[in-house]
């Protein structure tokens, strides 16, 4: 009896000491969330209104986020993902996980909306799932759509296609940076960062975008591409950290 007890306590001690020595790994999950006027996105329902007072619904939303990087004070940055494709009709695209984040004090996160000139090249991502659906034809400059944001406005049979991309090779992607406070150490454990897209803000301030001005489409319209880019860089994205 005494022997058994001794053995048990010895094993228990062993486990405890092991735990103390072992650092907890940190896996970082990046979630992509979507809201309209601060409420969670509801698709296929004409309940939204832009600044131009057009009512609209959202039926399609597909976009590319690239160059997702964590930055630290000491200059060490961590590339989390080169390109991530999000499609609101496919939940499996709503997140990805970076395993075993190195210990550091991370002070900001940055990413590109769309693909910058170095990445926005025809057939560069030919084996990625988004290759066919985000394809942007050569006569329009080649590469890929940054975003396909589609639905109906004013009535069920009038459609808008907010398709952004590198019109005639011009780069309308933009880099978004947000300061965060994320200290990864031996005790933190798993953590997630939520990148939210506030959809209505693509159309509001500083530039009011009207669907009724889209005409034959905006893929060749540099003025609208530029205005949407500016709106996007103003207040479309926000990042929160869940520890």
């Amino acid at each position: 009896m005494k022997k058994t007890l001794l053995l048990i306590s010895a094993i228990a001690f062993l486990f405890t000491s092991c735990d103390k020595d072992k650092a907890i790994k940190t896996d970082l999950t990046i979630n992509f969330t979507h809201s309209v006027d601060d409420s969670e996105l509801i698709t296929n329902s004409m309940i939204y209104t832009n600044e131009a007072e057009e009512n609209y619904d959202i039926q399609t939303l597909k976009y590319l986020i690239s160059d997702i990087i964590l930055h630290s004070e000491n200059g060490n940055s961590l590339l989390l993902n080169e390109v991530h494709f999000i499609d609101i009709s496919d939940e499996s695209t709503f997140s990805f996980t970076y395993n075993d984040v190195p210990n550091n004090d991370y002070t900001s996160i940055s990413f590109d909306m769309g693909l910058d000139t170095a990445r926005n090249i025809s057939n560069k991502y030919v084996n990625e799932d988004f290759h066919t659906t985000m394809y942007w034809p050569e006569p329009n400059g080649g590469g890929y759509h940054y975003m396909k944001f589609e639905g109906a406005y004013n009535n069920d049979s009038t459609f808008y296609n907010t398709h952004t991309g590198g019109t005639m090779g011009a780069d309308y992607s933009f880099n978004y940076v947000e300061n965060i406070s994320l200290t990864v150490d031996n005790d933190l454990g798993n953590v997630s960062a939520n990148i939210n897209m506030e959809l209505n803000n693509w159309y509001n301030s500083p530039n009011q975008i009207e669907f009724s001005s889209y005409g034959m489409g905006i893929m060749m319209n540099m003025m609208i591409q530029m205005n949407i880019q500016m709106n996007g860089n103003t207040d479309v994205f926000s990042v929160t950290i869940d520890k």
């Binding site: 290759h131 066919t132 659906t133 394809y135 034809p137 050569e138 006569p139 329009n140 296609n161 034959m216 489409g217 893929m219 060749m220």
Partner: peptide, 25 residues
């Protein structure tokens, strides 16, 4: 025709996309 097909004028390329001329959707 190539220009009509590949711009929003004809807007064929969104579904009949890439060198495969289809989108698997």
């Amino acid at each position: 025709g190539y220009a009509i097909f590949n711009t929003e004028k004809g807007d064929c390329f969104h579904c009949h996309s890439t060198n495969m001329f289809m989108d698997n959707l």
